[in-house]
Each structure stands twice: as C-alpha cells, then as structure tokens.
Design a binder for these strands. Structure first.
Lengths: 175, 175
DNA sequence: CGTGACACCGTCTACTGTGGAACGTCAAGG
DNA sequence: CCTTGACGTTCCACAGTAGACGGTGTCACG
C-alpha cells in the first residue's frame, strides 16, 4: 500500500477498531454512524476490503454461515489508519440536483418546479425532525457535547435548508 | 440515447442554449454559474460532449485555433434537455471529510484536530464573505430575487456551517 | 412438517465523478 | 528570438454510485 488510503477505506479501518466485522456489517455500521455526511455502497466496501486484505491492512477470518467473512484489523492497518487520520481533511462536496433544476428553471413550466420544490422541502423537514429526535435520545442516554458534533452539523444544515425553502420567492414555490 | 441523460450532461445542454461553446468554455461557464453546488471536471465534460455528439444531441463545429472545437445544440438535444428537466431532481449529496475526522477524533491527538478545525473554519468564512459580495454585486446589477435563489442557498449553508463551527465544544477547538 | 417470504451476504458490471499528467498551440513580453 | 503562460484537448487510474444477480439461513404460517 504505497499510495495513501482513501477516506472510505480509512473509515472502514476505523470501525474495525471495535472488533472484526463483515462487509455487510460495515455497511450498516457506517450508515448508522457516519451516514448523514458520508455515503458508501456495498460494492465499494467489498472492493476496499479485498484491496486492503491484499495490502495486509486487514485479514479475512474464516467464512461463517452464508459466506459471511469478517475482517480483522492488523497492525499495519492500525498504522495506516492513524497515518490517514493525521492528514488534513479535504473540503466538503455538495451536489444538489434541485439547484440545477432551479438554475435552469426558465426552461420549465412554473407548476412543475413548485411541485419539485415542495417534495424536497418535505424531505428536509422529515430529516430535521429525525435529527432532533436522535439528539434528544442521545442526550437522554448520557451523550456529551463532543459526541454530538456530527449530528449537530446535520441539524444546523437542515435548519438552514428549511429556512432557505421558506424564503423562496413565489415564482419558485408557485405561491 | 435510449437511457436518460445524467445531470452533468444535461447541464451542458442547458448552457448550449445560449450558443455553441467548446468544452473549455463550458467548464468555465459551469464553474461560474453552478459551481457552488455542482462540480464537474474537464475530463467529464469532454467525455459527455463526445458521447452526446455520438447520440446526436450536439454537433461539433469545425475545429478552430488550438484544436478548439465548439459544439452546438441540435433539436434532439433540446428535446433531451427538456425531458431531463421535467424529471424530479434527486436528493443532494454531501461528503464532508472533516466530519469523518471528527467522528474518529478519539484516535487523534487533540492539538491536530483543533488545527484542522481552524483551517476549515477559515475556508468557510472566506466563502461566506465571497457569497455576500457576489450577492451585493448582483443586486446592484438589478438581479431579481428569483435570480438569487441558488446563491442564497450557498449563503445560508455557509452561515449555518460557520454557526456550527462557533458552537463546537472546546475539546474539539482546543479552546 | 413444508414452504414461502424475507433478511442476510457477497459478487459483478456499467456508468458517473475526480484528479492530474501529458502535450501541442497561440500571444505577449523581455 | 525565446520564454512564459493561458488556451484547449486527450488520456488514464482511481473513487463512487446504482442496481442486477444468486445463494443461504430463519421464521412464521398454513
């Protein structure tokens, strides 16, 4: 592994610090813990796992039922993870197709645009509600502020987006 | 072109409504107008252009100086663009490596984390300032609210992120 | 007991997106 | 004249996405 890890592979190593997991497990773990701001797919997880196994950063354990195969961290893997973690993180990426539609809205009949906007607003409202519930549950379970920083990012993001939706001019919302 | 356009290709068609442009031009146009929320690279632009030329959505004009080759919209291209625009836009994607670092911060010495956070905060502060300036200029140039919706998204996003940075617990900021 | 539904688990492929190397070309300035 | 640098395209390797596919264990229900 001459070249440095990519962020997705590194996060898998991060999760493996808590014990061996299969690719399937890792997808679930990742979705639960970093899914709000980092997406990954099964395909990629398995691809990275076998690459890292080849590079000696993880070792596959014996296959269990249903071809289940857990991977365990090696010392090299631990070292690679720490090396990755010490590197300055890159900037965030945002891609929002709705804004693309909005940018070209002059080519679109007004009614359809308003419908798209309403649909997206509903999605964000639901996400915000979900984050608020999650936060309350975490607090009740004794979480410290430092445990909530990534969740709080999502909260503030969704609040901002909802505020943006609600400030949209009537040409866009169909008002 | 049986399969539907992807968003990047569609946006190129959108820009070509204003007249023929080369790949190089399109990269610049896109960066200026949708770059805040939609990234694209040279490689992809040229790839999509030749694919669309093959599908008859655009036609290459004669090559000018420096192998420059402008593409013009065809009627098929116009139709494909409208068909794409009428489809409900997908949800946004966010990937923020800093949050990944934060999520695994327990494996990292405190000082390094604070430095990363400070660097990212500065980036966002600069972007916010840039957006505010852009907005003022656009208003001065007579822009209507509907022309500012995508810029306003960026503004609210950056305000929210900055608010989040400023509410981070001292364990993270090194305070 | 049987079987059908469904979650579990991995593989594969095609396509989309990113980053940078490479390379020729024209314009302008010292 | 020569260098520098913007212009413009091509190519490649890798990262990320989406979904089809196929096999397997479990459990509920008839």
């Amino acid at each position: 592994m001459a070249t440095t890890l990519n962020a997705t592979a590194a996060s898998l190593l991060g999760f493996l610090h808590d014990g061996p997991q299969s690719g399937y497990d890792l997808v679930g773990t990742a979705e639960r813990s970093i899914g709000n701001f980092w997406s990954l797919t099964r395909s990629q997880v398995y691809r990275e796992l076998s690459a890292m196994a080849g590079a000696g950063l993880v070792v596959a354990q014996e296959t269990g039922p249903r071809d289940r195969r857990a991977y365990a961290l090696t010392d090299d893997g631990r070292a690679a993870f720490r090396a990755w973690l010490a590197r300055p993180p890159a900037e965030e990426q945002i891609r929002y197709p709705l804004l693309l539609t909005l940018a070209f809205a002059r080519h679109l009949p007004a009614g359809e645009l308003a419908a798209f906007v309403a649909q997206h607003r509903a999605v964000h409202a639901a996400r915000l509600a979900g984050y608020r519930r999650e936060r309350a549950e975490a607090l009740a379970a004794g979480a410290r502020p430092v445990d909530l920083v990534t969740l709080d990012f999502g909260l503030r993001y969704e609040e901002a987006v909802l505020g943006w939706f609600d400030a949209l001019p009537p040409e866009v919302t169909g008002g």
